Simulated scan of single mutants.
Amino acid sequence: MKLNDLCFFYHSGANARRVVGAVTVAREWYEVGGEGVVDVKAVGEMRRPLDLKELKGDEGLKGFQLFRQPRLSVVPVSKEVWERVCELGGGFEGDGKEVGGGDDDDG
């Protein structure tokens, strides 16, 4: 994880395994008390959180490493997976994409 990388924020609790937002790396890996740490900063919530079950059922996400790791910490996300997750979740607040009935001059 490199400074300013975008990352998904994923809840991994027993009752709520889902992608809920996007964060950016604010400080690269460092050690605290023998543990590796990466500081992140919130970018925005997903417009529609995505449960693990829904993600696993999507053909475009087959083979995503998130599905193979029983205890999640950090997994790489390819550009294709990033784009598909964002598409399924309607993007995230702060992604620069407008959502909903904006004023459109197309007639």
Score class of each variant (00 low, 15 high):
69 Q>F: 07
84 R>Y: 01
98 E>A: 14
96 G>V: 07
19 V>R: 07
64 F>P: 05
31 E>R: 13
63 G>C: 06
59 E>Y: 02
27 R>T: 06
77 V>A: 05
64 F>T: 06
81 V>R: 08
80 E>H: 11
39 D>C: 04
11 H>N: 15
74 V>D: 02
103 D>W: 13
41 K>C: 02
98 E>R: 13
104 D>Y: 12
10 Y>F: 15
106 D>L: 14
100 G>W: 04
11 H>L: 13
74 V>R: 03
47 R>A: 09
54 E>C: 05
86 C>A: 03
7 C>S: 11
84 R>D: 06
33 G>Q: 14
9 F>A: 14
33 G>W: 12
22 A>K: 04
82 W>A: 06
24 T>S: 12
51 D>I: 09
14 A>H: 11
78 S>Q: 03
20 V>D: 12
82 W>P: 04
27 R>W: 03
33 G>D: 15
91 G>S: 07
18 R>W: 10
85 V>C: 00
33 G>A: 15
75 V>R: 02
102 G>N: 09
36 G>T: 15
77 V>H: 06
32 V>L: 14
42 A>D: 10
84 R>K: 00
61 L>Y: 06
107 G>N: 11
34 G>Q: 11
1 M>L: 12
55 L>N: 03
15 N>Q: 13
13 G>F: 03
53 K>W: 01
58 D>G: 01
26 A>I: 05
104 D>G: 05
40 V>Y: 05
97 K>C: 14
62 K>H: 05
32 V>T: 13
39 D>I: 04
88 L>Y: 02
28 E>A: 01
63 G>K: 04
96 G>W: 00
74 V>H: 01
67 F>S: 05
78 S>M: 01
82 W>Y: 11
101 G>Q: 15
37 V>W: 14
101 G>S: 14
15 N>P: 08
40 V>R: 08
84 R>A: 07
105 D>T: 10
75 V>P: 08
105 D>I: 10
64 F>G: 00
10 Y>P: 02
2 K>F: 10
46 M>E: 01
101 G>L: 12
36 G>D: 14
59 E>A: 09
73 S>F: 09
98 E>D: 12
11 H>K: 13
16 A>S: 15
66 L>M: 02
19 V>G: 05
16 A>P: 08
85 V>K: 04
84 R>H: 00
59 E>I: 03
6 L>T: 06
82 W>M: 09
74 V>S: 00
103 D>M: 14
74 V>N: 00
18 R>Q: 15
107 G>T: 08
23 V>A: 06
64 F>Q: 02
66 L>P: 01
54 E>R: 03
4 N>A: 09
77 V>S: 05
58 D>T: 07
7 C>F: 08
89 G>K: 01
91 G>Q: 00
78 S>K: 07
70 P>R: 10
59 E>L: 05
96 G>E: 07
91 G>E: 03
47 R>Q: 10
20 V>F: 10
41 K>Q: 12
37 V>N: 10
20 V>P: 00
15 N>A: 14
68 R>G: 15
91 G>L: 04
93 E>Q: 11
26 A>V: 08
57 G>T: 04
64 F>Y: 08
3 L>G: 10
53 K>L: 04
